[in-house]
Design a protein around this nucleic acid. Structure first.
Lengths: 228, 228
DNA sequence: TTGAAAATAGCACGATCGTTCGTTAACTTA
DNA sequence: TAAGTTAACGAACGATCGTGCTATTTTCAA
């Protein structure tokens, strides 16, 4: 049972490629099989249903997201450096080579607005975790004095996320060359916003461990290690 | 030739409904015909091709956007009131009853990231105009002292737009009840950001006409009057 | 009211959709 | 190497896709 895993991985990779460009709706078993030089039925057997295939693609992307965007950021010193790394990782992810058509999670998210089902449920839980991760990193930064006390971490997560969407739109759709710069500018002013600029910063405690380890472990457990 | 226009309008309405929920990709002539009690071929004859139907749906939504979001905002006094109205109108549009699945333009935009063609071209031009409209309204506000001199109107448009996307995500996907409040908060802090808070405001010149009438007329000409 | 024009229906087409089935080829392991 | 397992294939299924035709009905103007 080695060959099986290999082709399954190959299928997922190709499927992610298509889903990135065409969206989950544009992913058909026929074209996917042709792309891989497989027969429809041979490919189909690996998943048992189209929905299962879509779910597998989404899960794979989601796991990869945790491994590539979230986990490395949490090795950064807590507070502002971690937030900045999180943001930069996200930008990189969004225009990563492995997603020729842009982040498939974001695409799926907008595709599944109004289509209830297990796939939407899964995506919803992942997105909630993602926002939770942002908010939690922000809260630490607030505690450390890197961000203004007055900051609501949920609001921060909302705006953080919004900038990411704006970037995706500006970069992928408008093909705006300054997209990244615009996103960075917006993010920097988000960090500064309502901040206690005059007040002296708290002493650097960047390396103290994050006290809310549970949530992070949740993430690890839920998503598992990166597939590659 | 009255009946023709009527059914065509009815088709467009039903098509918009579907496209809003399922996306342009999920809109098929068969299901659309069934929904309207028409035959496939009868419906088809009105447009001549699927692409033409999609284009018509997009154009209709776009015209409606101008009529419902942009035009009323430009009857508001120039400067900050106009910006605020523009934003509020956009939020209202995004959760309007006529789009049970959310703004079809936004959906199409994310669907057509990587699919070149006349439809993408059209959407691109419309989005450019939209951003231009925001930027232009912001520039006036800067001139009037309602916004900080240091503000780059393009950057403003980027962030304005980003908040809208964030709202759409938070409202439509997460079903977050506070979405609107989050969006408003983000927008207010965008208006205040880097502002010359200390400096006295310029005297109110809200009713002076906008000197860059051309762009607005472009909008009117390009999009025509509202279909209803 | 009649005749031209426009709107709609009916039917069929080739393609593709997701899926099932039985069979064969390839691999793993004992 | 033999046996047993798994992966892949090919053909076919009913359904639906977008798109042509040719009739037939409905609408509108004279």
């Amino acid at each position: 049972m080695i060959k099986g895993k290999q082709t399954k991985a190959a299928i997922l990779e190709a499927a992610t490629d298509i889903a990135s460009k065409e969206g989950l709706g544009g992913l058909s078993i026929g074209t996917l099989a042709k792309k891989l030089g497989l027969s429809k039925s041979g490919l189909f057997a690996h998943f048992g249903s189209k929905d299962a295939l879509l779910m597998a693609v989404t899960e794979a992307a989601s796991q990869r997201f945790v491994a590539v965007v979230i986990r490395p950021a949490f090795q950064e010193p807590a507070g502002r450096p971690r937030l900045e790394r999180l943001f930069e990782n996200w930008l990189n992810w969004s225009e990563s080579r492995e997603f020729p058509g842009g982040c498939p999670i974001m695409a799926a998210t907008l595709e599944l607005d109004d289509r209830p089902g297990p796939l939407r449920d899964y995506l919803l839980s992942q997105q909630r975790k993602w926002l939770g991760t942002i908010g939690q990193a922000a809260e630490i930064a607030i505690d450390m004095g890197h961000l203004a006390d007055s900051f609501d971490s949920e609001q921060f997560a909302f705006e953080f996320n919004a900038i990411g969407f704006g970037y995706h739109f500006s970069n992928r759709f408008l093909r705006e060359p300054h997209a990244r710069h615009q996103a960075r500018t917006a993010f920097q002013s988000l960090l500064v916003k309502r901040s206690n600029a005059g007040k002296p910063q708290a002493p650097d405690q960047s390396n103290i461990p994050c006290e809310k380890e549970t949530e992070r472990d949740d993430h690890r457990n839920a998503c598992g290690p990166a597939p590659q």
